[in-house]
Amino acid sequence: MTFSISLTVNGVRRDVELDNPRVTLLDLLRERLQLTGTKKGCDRGQCGACTVLVDGRRINSCLALALSHDGADIRTIEGVAEGGHLHPVQEAFIAHDALQCGFCTPGQIMSAIGLIQEGQTDGDPERVREGMSGNLCRCSAYAGITEAVLDAQKKLAEAGGTDAGRRDAA
C-alpha cells in the first residue's frame, strides 16, 4: 500500500508517494527529498540536530511521522537564507563562532529561529540558554550560540519584524 502526501517544503509544494507508513519527517527530508542539511544525531528526540520548523514551530523531525504531517508547511535549514542573503541568525552564528564541527548547527539555527518567534526570552541570556537547551553541541559552542541568538534577536527586533529582517551576508 502506498500513501500520498503533500508538503510545502521551503515554499515549494512537494507531492510525495510513500511506499510505507513508517517514514519519519527527518528520513523523508534526508533520504527521499535529498534535503540533507537537517541532521540525524540520535533519532530519538534527545539531541535536537533534526530540528525543523513545521507550520512555523520548531520540532524534532525524528519523532514526527511524515504521514501525520500531510499538508504541513516545513522549513528546513536549506530554506532559511534567501536570494544569497543569510538570515540574521545565520550571520550571527558565524560572527560569534557559534559552531565548530557544524553538525548540530542546522538544528541550532532552526531552533534559534523558532525560539525567537516564540517570543519568550526578552533578551535574557538565561532564558536563551534554557530555550536552546534542547540542542546538544558536543563541541560545546554554547557560549557563542547564546551570544549569537541574543545578537540576532536584537537585530531582528531593530529591523521591526520577527523573521523578516534579512540582511546582506556581506
Binding site: K40, A81, F93, D97
Partner: peptide, 21 residues
C-alpha cells in the same frame, strides 16, 4: 578570521558523510 566554512555550515550545504546519496 571567522570560519571560512561558516557559510556552508550555517546553510546546511556542508556535506557530511551520511549526506551523500
Amino acid at each position: 578570521l571567522t570560519r571560512r566554512d561558516g557559510v556552508l555550515k550555517v546553510t546546511g550545504a556542508a556535506t557530511y558523510a551520511a549526506d551523500n546519496h
